[in-house]
């Protein structure tokens, strides 16, 4: 059974395994530094569909199908499905996954959804409530632009702090402890708002949430940056990453040498014109599912923290002058499971 350690962290004593993962990317993502690692790449931004929303749904559908194929499983083998995306009413997930027939939970955590869905999947497996659970998220540049910003053909300049919504999806299957990567502990984030109002500077809005969650995890587990090979945040981009490092420095944690950000891994910031880096549910999902999970499997990464961050505003709330509430969820992923308890209290 799981053990509460400290106030916010849950140690998953059984250490559920991520037994498979799949990542889908668009053309721009495939041209990025980790483009070769995607399972499926589609150069057609519409993915053969009529609308951008259906294109994103198709991506989710393909990601789900691919991860099932890779694990030699059928939809009927999966007991629960946690999914989310950036669109209103989660239409990408709802339309993309309606044919699977798996008991379904829709999640909205903005760009933090991959961590949120993985945490819930791991908790269900850890608690013995399910044998196999799927977590899946996506984002699409074109569907996100028209919902959150401007029509694609509108001529405007993006600010240097803005981030590029990834056209990508990632899916994982979590099952009982069997193989790496193992989910050893999770810290669920609280909503945090430092009064940032700039929609074109989401990294800055999200960095404090990431700082709080990481700090709480370190305090709860009595560990620090030196205990991990990698501290991977989801989608803070360049500005947010710089701020996170500064914020944690003030708290007494130097993560500079261990830190990387999915938004800066997915694209080459220098040549791909993404300004401060990538973002979107699909960004953290695709980086985790294509690049990180195989690296843990192969033992290249032994212990790491995956912290996906989300900006929880809507275009309406921002137009009404509200600031951007943010969240960050953390998972400790490892190539080895938690040691079996020796009896007695820890």
């Amino acid at each position: 059974m799981a053990t509460n350690i400290g106030q916010y962290t849950l140690r998953l004593d059984q250490s559920p395994s991520i037994i498979g993962s799949a990542a889908i990317g668009g053309k721009k993502e495939a041209e990025g530094p980790i483009g070769r690692m995607f399972d499926i790449v589609n150069n057609d931004a519409l993915f053969g569909q009529k609308t951008w929303e259906l294109a994103e749904s198709e991506m989710q559908h393909q990601a789900a199908q691919k991860v099932l194929d890779k694990c030699n499983l059928a939809p009927g083998d999966i007991q629960y499905l946690f999914a989310g995306d950036l669109l209103n009413q989660l239409v990408a997930s709802h339309y993309g996954l309606r044919e699977l027939g798996i008991p379904f939970f829709g999640l909205y955590g903005a760009c933090s959804t991959m961590a949120e869905s993985l945490i819930l999947s791991s908790m269900l497996v850890e608690g013995g409530l399910a044998k196999k659970v799927m977590a899946i998220t996506s984002s699409h540049f074109c569907s996100a632009e028209r919902q959150f910003r401007f029509p694609l053909e509108y001529g405007g300049q993006r600010t240097p702090t803005s981030q590029w919504t990834a056209t990508a999806a990632g899916a994982c299957i979590v099952a009982e402890c069997s193989q790496p990567p193992y989910v050893r502990a999770v810290t669920v984030g609280c909503i945090e708002d430092k009064d940032v109002k700039d929609l074109n500077n989401m990294g800055a809005a999200m960095a404090p949430a990431a700082c709080t969650t990481i700090k709480r995890y370190f305090q709860d587990t009595l560990t620090g940056p030196d205990n991990y090979d990698l501290i991977l945040t989801g989608d803070l981009g360049q500005v947010g990453s710089d701020l996170l490092i500064q914020l944690l420095q003030r708290e007494g944690y130097d993560i500079k040498k261990k830190h990387a950000d999915c938004g800066l891994i997915l694209y080459d910031q220098r040549t791909q014109d993404v300004h401060a880096g990538g973002s979107g549910c699909g960004c953290a999902a695709a980086v985790l599912c294509s690049y990180i999970i195989p690296a843990i499997k192969e033992g290249k990464i032994k212990d790491m923290l995956f912290i996906a961050t989300g900006a929880l505003m809507s275009p309406v709330s921002v137009q009404q002058g509200q600031s951007i509430p943010c969240i960050a969820h953390l998972l400790h992923l490892s190539s080895t499971p938690n040691p079996k308890p020796q009896g007695g209290n820890l």
């Binding site: 300049q157 430092k194 701020l243 003030r250």
Partner: peptide, 26 residues
């Protein structure tokens, strides 16, 4: 450790955010 106030954080954000390149844009 005291947490950063909103005002102090706004200053940090300002410093960390690169401005638009006016020398090129204008």
């Amino acid at each position: 450790m005291e947490t950063v106030t909103n005002r102090a954080y706004a200053e940090m954000v300002k410093k960390a955010s690169p401005p638009s390149n006016s020398a090129r844009n204008i």
